[in-house]
Amino acid sequence: MTRRITNGRGVLIAVVAVVLAALVVLALTLGGGRDPGTAQPPPAQPVAVVPTPEAQSQDAVAALPKSEPVSLDIPKIGAHSSLIPLGLNPDNTVEVPPVTTPLQAGWYTYAPTPGEIGPAVVLGHVDGNHQKGIFFRLKELAAGDRVSIGRKDGTTAVFEVTKVHQVPKKDFEGEGVYDDTAGPELRLITCGGVFDRNAHNYVDNIVVYARLVQA
């Protein structure tokens, strides 16, 4: 009796071993020999990063050293002017050229000079003294148009327009016109929109954004 029980257990163990071995073989066959719970994903394939034309152009143009701007040239709108320095008014607003000479543009001396890293700023009137101003047609500019700034060191900084915004003057602070930039940029600013006769001023500003593309 004892021997039969012992022999029966031996047979059972042998059968179980055979079954387990068969299951292991089957699992290895179906699973490719990999544990699905610990298998690592295939390594990612390297992706070639191709810079956009804007990035390529920006990266290709090095910033210029500081040098005062002396002239402005915007062929598309026929705007040509010397540049006078502009500072701050007593109320900390930015100065503008004299309204009696509306064809005169000026550059903001507390900003970078055109070609340096950061946003250089040039201001001009849309009109004044019963005449059209230097920036009368500024709102006609569009992405891709060129603006040239002659500099005192004899170089010319050429900028390409990226966008044109018409901004209510009450919202101008939030427009980020004077915010730092990674590369050399330019801002052209004038008045626009409806003329408020009570305030004797326009209600909006036209702001042209441009980046250095040639020096």
Rank of each mutant, 00 (worst) to 15 (best):
Q166V: 11
F135V: 01
R146M: 14
I189L: 13
G192A: 14
Q131S: 10
W107A: 01
A143S: 15
I149N: 11
T181L: 07
D204S: 09
V121E: 11
D179V: 05
R187Y: 03
G150D: 02
G193D: 06
D171G: 10
G144W: 09
G115Y: 03
T100D: 14
L123I: 15
N205G: 01
G133A: 06
V158W: 08
L138W: 02
G176L: 08
A120T: 03
E185R: 15
F172D: 09
V94M: 15
R146V: 13
P102S: 07
Y110G: 07
A111E: 01
H130I: 10
P184R: 05
D196N: 15
A105E: 00
A210M: 10
V208P: 04
D180S: 13
P184N: 06
V158S: 11
G133S: 08
Y209D: 10
T162L: 12
P184M: 02
A157M: 09
L138A: 04
P168I: 09
Y209K: 03
D171S: 13
V164H: 12
Y209L: 06
L138T: 03
T190V: 02
Q131I: 06
P112S: 09
V96I: 12
N201E: 13
F136H: 15
V207I: 15
G192W: 05
P168Y: 04
L103K: 14
V203P: 05
G192R: 04
K169F: 09
E173P: 00
L141E: 05
P97F: 01
G150K: 12
E116D: 05
F135E: 00
L141V: 08
R187L: 01
G133F: 02
V161E: 11
T100L: 12
A210W: 03
F172Q: 10
E95K: 11
V94I: 14
V208D: 00
V126R: 10
L141Q: 08
V126H: 02
R137I: 00
A142D: 13
N198I: 07
D171T: 07
H125Q: 00
G174L: 06
T101M: 12
T113N: 11
A105Y: 00
S148Q: 13
F136K: 12
G133P: 04
S148E: 09
G183F: 06
Y108L: 13
F195T: 01
V194D: 14
N201D: 15
E116Q: 15
G154M: 11
F195E: 05
P98M: 05
T181Q: 14
I134F: 09
D153I: 01
D145E: 10
V167Y: 11
K170P: 00
R137P: 00
V121S: 08
I189A: 03
D179P: 05
F136S: 13
D153A: 03
K132N: 14
P102E: 04
